[in-house]
Every structure is written in structure tokens, then in C-alpha cells.
Amino acid sequence: MEDKSILITTGEPAGIGPDITLQLAQQALPIPVQIVALADPELLAQRASELGLSVQLHTYDPLKPVQKHQAGHLEVISVPLSQSVKSGELNAANASYVLEILRQGCQACLEKRFDALVTAPVHKGIINEAGIPFSGHTEFFAEQTDTKQVVMMLATKKLRVALVTTHLPLSAVSSAITPKRLETVIRILAADLTNKFGCQLPHILVCGLNPHAGEGGHLGKEEIVTIIPTLNKLRAEGLQLTGPVSADTAFIPQSLSGVDAVLTMYHDQGLPVLKQQGFSKAVNITLGLPIIRTSVDHGTALNLAGTGEASSESLYNAIEMAWGMISGL
């Protein structure tokens, strides 16, 4: 099998994105992939010296054949910063740099110059402060690739959780769950579980929206009006769907046996569970895009930038997950 090439967006320059990229580059990797980073090389050099890491930076040459990662080396596609960076200190002037990295990364994968995109954390607040509306990576890539509906999924080795809605006020969730959206999300999830995760007939456990999944309409009508009819329609086509189930018992071991993914209706229905079970082990995946994209599951951790205390474990997990998805494992 030909070696795969993975592009890393290093994210917020004042956060730990550059740190974990360098820490990862310093190690040998157990999987045969090429790692290329999108960043300002000066920032990386400065951060490496701050961390006391000796990583040799090379300018990425697209004409050279794909070469497996070598410990202590990192290939870089240069994107210049607007202003120099001090570890841990946000600067709205560099918001455009962060977005330029994301744009280039997305484009390079769309043009198949790389097999997958792995993203380090960005800081949503500072991008918005710079006057650029930005609600998250997932939404950004959907727009860049002209994809109408994407699905955010978080996965550990044991559990996959996909979301029908993501970064919405909780009060807006109910009206956002339309039959059309739910149907599209389930179709994307089922197709990607088959194509990218090797599940032949994926079994999806679908959570209800309300307490006790609405308890027959007494605690909310969304199950009866939207969720149940949509699931029935898709079941009739042969999809293997269980639910809607009460979310508070969806994640206990008895409920999860034989389940390939849990579909939750909103952000905090499923993500706290995953974080609790596998902090820094979960990988964030965007399904439904024309590119493969995975991400770390943590934030910019500004207070850890430049200290050497950040862990590259989640970044490695995101790379390993992307590698598996490229091969359809």
C-alpha cells in the first residue's frame, strides 16, 4: 500500500497547536504516514526552541514522492503570520492567519494533494473579535467545500457519537431538528460508517430529544412529530436504527452492545459522556465532507502553550483515525 499523506493545520498560533505538532514530529510514529504542517515556519522554530525540542523544519516539496514520517523532522507549508506571537497571548491581528491555514488545508485536500486534514485547535472568540463570524471548524469546512449538511462525530476506540445539531443555543435545538435534517444526517452517518469505518450494516442508536424520549408525548412532542416518523421511513429502506431511546440510559454498557454509533440530538447530550470516558482520547471527525477531516478534542489551552506540558496524544489519535478512514478500516 502506498504511504498516505496527512496535512495538519496548526491552528491558533498562541495556543498549543504548534507545540503538539512539534512534539509529535519529534517522535517516530507507528503508522506509515507522511506528516506536513501548515504554519509560519518562524513560529514553529521559535516555539521549538521555547520547548527545547530539536525538530528540523523542511519546506514541503510537492514534487517529491510521499515519504513516511521521520522522527525529528517536520515538513512545512509556509503561511506567514501577520504579527509575531507570544505564547499564550491571543492577538486578533492573527485571526486571518488562522483562517488562511484552514482555507489552504481544505483546498489542498479537495485537490487530492493530501489524503486527509487533521486540525489543531483554533480560538473561536478571537476570530469573532477580529470581526470575522466563525462558529467552528466543522461549519467552516462545510462552507468552503459547498457542503449543505455535515455531521460532527466524536470517536474513541470504544464509542462513536454523532450529533444532529452542534453549536446552537439549546433553545434553538428543537426547531433545528427537522425531518429533512434528521434524515440527511442519518444517511451521511450510515454511509460514512460503511465507507470509512468498515461497518457493513451499521447499527445506529438514536437518542430522543426530551427527558425519557418524550414519554409518549407527555414530556415533549418532537419524538412523535419528527423523530419516530423519520426513523420509520429510513428503517423501511433497510437502515438498522434503534430508538428514539431515553438519552440518560443510552450510554450504559447494556444499551451500547452491538451499536456502531450513537446519534445524539444536541452537543451536550453526547459529548460530556465521551470526554468523561476518554479525555484526550476522543477524536473529532467531520462526516459528509468531500475530504477526510479529523481533529483533536481539546481547546487551545493558552496557559500551556510554550510550557511543554501539553500532550500530543489527542493529535496522534486524530492522525491515526484519519489514516484508518483513508483506508476504510
Binding site: L170, P211, A247, D248, T249, F251, I252, D268, Q269, P272, V273, Q276, Q277
Partner: peptide
């Protein structure tokens, strides 16, 4: 702040 927020957090730890 709502039923499932607290229920999921507790029952998932040890039902």
C-alpha cells in the same frame, strides 16, 4: 439545568 444534563452525567458514571 435540565433533566438529561444531570441524568446523563450521573447514570453514565454508574447506572
Amino acid at each position: 439545568l435540565y433533566h438529561d444534563q444531570g441524568h446523563i452525567a450521573t447514570k453514565t458514571v454508574d447506572f
